[in-house]
Design a protein around this nucleic acid. Structure first.
Lengths: 118, 118
DNA sequence: ACCTATTTGTCCGTATGTATG
DNA sequence: CCATACATACGGACAAATAGG
């Protein structure tokens, strides 16, 4: 299963979906040019409304991770083939997560600094 | 590459193709009598469906820029050999872009006026 | 002038995201 | 989060024009 949900989680469903796909891209399981499942298909497989999936896809589009078009579907733009590119994607994912969690920028920097040091 | 696409652009693919070719004609890279690549060939080269290219070709035909026929392909009609003709083609291109962008005619006139003055 | 194969656009239906309520 | 109407893009079968024999 490309996307798995956690029932009962306070996190909105569309956020869970987006986060799951973001990880897949960051980890290289989804590469540039790959096409995500049609929203209607993914929606049916995890038993949510099409628009909930589309909202997740729209988030990824706004982050510049995918190209989203009627008739075409969601195509991964993010280049995950070069190490440099993977870093950028990872950063995008980090920022998205931080924003969602409400963590201030300073704190994110601090956490990164610590991790880099260790 | 005769036509290049911009992934992630909100502009429809067929519009991107048409605009690209319109510019090529306006700039004289494509002249009267030249034939555009067969739709299937161009489609393959930019990894898009044949019909998406054909829709772009049809737009150019409706603007009177090309002659489109089965078995013949798309032949440039627009005369780009005289300075006067190039101006007319450029105007066609401008109008197409303005319509697409939803710019009111008045505004287009104003923009032109300013540029001409400068 | 004819036939056939090939090339190339046209037509009709389907899939998919977008916009609005 | 759901339902409906719509524009974009795709896919397959068809018809027109061309070229070779």
């Amino acid at each position: 299963m490309l996307v798995t949900l956690t029932p009962g989680s306070p996190e909105p469903i569309y956020d869970q979906i987006a986060a799951s796909l973001r990880r897949s891209i960051a980890e290289g399981r989804l590469n540039q040019g790959d096409v995500l499942p049609p929203a209607r298909v993914l929606a049916a497989s995890i038993k949510v409304n099409v628009h909930t999936v589309l909202r997740a896809y729209a988030s990824l589009r706004d982050e510049g991770m995918v190209d989203l078009r009627p008739g075409r579907g969601a195509t991964v733009i993010a280049d995950t083939n070069t190490p440099d590119a993977r870093v950028r994607v990872a950063v995008t994912a980090l920022v998205a997560e931080a924003r969602k969690a409400g963590v201030p920028d300073d704190a994110v920097f601090e956490m990164l600094r610590e991790q880099l040091r260790g």
